[in-house]
């Protein structure tokens, strides 16, 4: 077919497809019939593009067809927008992803406990090393019988400290999660270091006979907070594992699959950080609330989270 004839015959089709693409901006106003027609035209445009690219490369028609084929591909293929409601996400997608990552979470927990034991041993056997973790101000406070956590609420209004705490914790979780892409090194570091830090801090406060105070302070928010950080880190480890040991599938595919689960886990954890920030500011430092009540609250929060995460759901990876 010669160039002029090709254009004469096919151009109305291209113009129509171009117009359809422009009209169907968000694809929301396209009905079933319209979509079917569009898909048919897309296919014809794609074939014309193949012909033009082979027979008339570089011509205006070939360039236009290439642009049309790309625009049509972008519009008609791809992941689109799946509308998973928030409720369905928290009740099904999140628990399934969480449970698929159970082994990773256990690994993260083991590493964390290892770090904590190490830090505790260090702080008990060599208190001067443990002091390095806290800094001089906190140590001076301990010597005077005060926890550094008191300044958290006495110096700034609660709205400020709670938003600061929430954003800070979320940032740690996001960094640990995203850092998984560096072969899992960042979540590994965050898990081990946080374990070490907690162990060392408990050890130092033991040294000053303040450990009870500290545990009373963290009872309400600490359990779930550590759980969430560990879970987000475990998701990051999952990304790292897909990168290092992809298994039977090509690495890009393994990475994408791991990312999907990891993202669901992360998104499921984020709202809890907000709850925890409020608890950490209003409940944890309050001397009126008895330690037992704080512990009950902490365990209740943890229980609520785990009950949601461990809900019996189908673990088969679905499209949503």
């Amino acid at each position: 077919m010669d160039y002029a004839r090709f254009i004469r015959l096919r151009r109305p089709l291209w113009d129509a497809f171009d117009g359809e693409l422009a009209a169907a901006r968000g694809m929301r106003n396209v009905g079933y019939d319209g979509l079917e027609e569009m898909a048919l035209r897309y296919r014809q445009v794609l074939h014309d593009h193949a012909l033009a690219a082979a027979r008339f490369p570089g011509t205006a028609a070939a360039r236009r067809l290439q642009a049309l084929a790309l625009a049509g591909t972008r519009r008609l293929t791809g992941e689109g927008r799946r509308r998973t409601g928030a409720v369905a996400f928290f009740l099904r997608t999140f628990p399934a992803a969480f449970q698929r990552q159970r082994d990773l979470i256990l690994i993260a927990l083991a590493l964390f406990l290892l770090g904590a034991l190490w830090g505790l041993a260090m702080a008990v056997l060599r208190p001067e090393l443990g002091l390095l973790f806290l800094g001089p101000d906190a140590v001076r406070g301990l010597e005077e019988g005060r926890l550094w956590t008191e300044s958290l609420v006495t110096t700034v209004p609660p709205s400020v400290s709670s938003s600061g705490i929430a954003t800070n914790n979320i940032t740690v979780a996001l960094t640990s999660w995203g850092g998984g892409v560096l072969a899992g090194l960042v979540p590994l570091y965050i898990v081990l270091f946080n374990g070490l830090l907690l162990g060392a801090v408990v050890g130092v406060t033991l040294h000053y006979s303040m450990a009870g105070e500290l545990l009373r302070f963290i009872a309400a928010h600490g359990i779930l907070e550590l759980t969430l950080i560990l879970i987000c880190s475990a998701a990051g480890l999952g990304i790292g594992r897909a990168l290092v040991a992809a298994g039977d599938v090509p690495r890009p595919l393994a990475l994408r699959a791991a990312t999907r689960d990891a993202l669901a886990v992360l998104l499921g954890c984020l709202p809890w950080f907000l709850v925890l920030a409020l608890v950490e500011v209003f409940v944890s430092p309050s001397p009126e609330i008895p330690a037992g009540a704080k512990l009950v609250l902490g365990l209740a929060l943890e229980g609520a989270f785990l009950a949601l995460a461990l809900r019996p759901v189908s673990l088969e990876p679905t499209d949503d």
Partner: peptide, 20 residues
């Protein structure tokens, strides 16, 4: 990678590691 429109999950994931 197939030339289609990415979903919210892919777009979120690609932007969560922006700082790295």
């Amino acid at each position: 990678a197939e030339g289609g429109t990415p979903g919210p999950g892919a777009l979120l994931a690609r932007n969560l590691v922006r700082s790295l």
